[in-house]
Amino acid sequence: MKKIMNEQLIYEILSVVEEIPEGKVATYGQIASLIGRDKNARLVGKVLSQAEFYGRYPCHRVVNYAGRLVPGWQEQRFLLLEEGVSFKDANHVDMKKNKWEC
């Protein structure tokens, strides 16, 4: 049976995002695994794209599995740099140094 996106699921995702420490990043897949939905990384991305409707969360600390930033979100890089996150190139976080080990 297919699970639907509801308020409880949204807040589960956002509560994990809220736990990511300053200066660290997590992946969409990592967050999906932490809430028990291993194959729903895209769902995490969908929720994060609408997070502003639920409050202030450090969504800038979430990147894809390779450390790639969100395309078109220029502020993400700036916010991560302010927190001391290092980059491999202009669009990729150095995951070896900055991945949140939870």
Rank of each mutant, 00 (worst) to 15 (best):
V16M: 06
V63G: 01
P58D: 05
L9I: 11
V93N: 01
L79M: 11
E101Q: 10
N6R: 13
E18K: 15
V85R: 00
V62K: 03
E19D: 14
Y28G: 02
S33W: 05
W100R: 01
N98I: 03
I20C: 04
C59W: 12
M95Q: 07
C102P: 15
L69T: 05
R42T: 08
Q76H: 01
Q76K: 03
A26N: 05
S15D: 13
E52L: 07
I20D: 00
R77P: 00
V16W: 04
F87Y: 04
Q50F: 15
Y54A: 03
Q8E: 13
A90D: 09
A32G: 08
G55K: 10
K97S: 13
R68W: 09
L79N: 08
K96T: 10
Y11I: 03
A51S: 13
L80G: 00
H92N: 10
N64C: 07
M5K: 13
P71V: 00
E83F: 04
Q8Y: 13
E7L: 06
G67H: 06
I4K: 15
H60G: 09
Q30C: 03
D38A: 10
G84V: 05
K96G: 09
S86M: 02
G29W: 08
G23M: 05
R42A: 01
I20N: 03
C102L: 02
G29K: 10
F87N: 06
L80S: 00
Q74E: 09
V62I: 13
D38T: 13
V44I: 13
K46Y: 15
F87A: 09
R42L: 02
L80H: 00
L80A: 00
Q76E: 03
A32H: 07
G72I: 00
T27A: 02
V47E: 08
V25P: 11
N98R: 03
N91S: 10
V44R: 12
F78C: 12
N64V: 03
I10E: 12
G72A: 00
G55A: 05
L14Q: 11
Y28R: 13
C102R: 10
G84L: 04
M95N: 10
Y11A: 02
G45R: 14
Y54H: 15
K39V: 02
S86P: 14
L34Y: 10
S33K: 14
E83C: 06
K39E: 07
V70A: 05
N98S: 12
E19Q: 15
I35S: 01
A66H: 12
F78V: 14
G72Y: 00
F87Q: 04
K46F: 15
V85E: 00
Y65V: 09
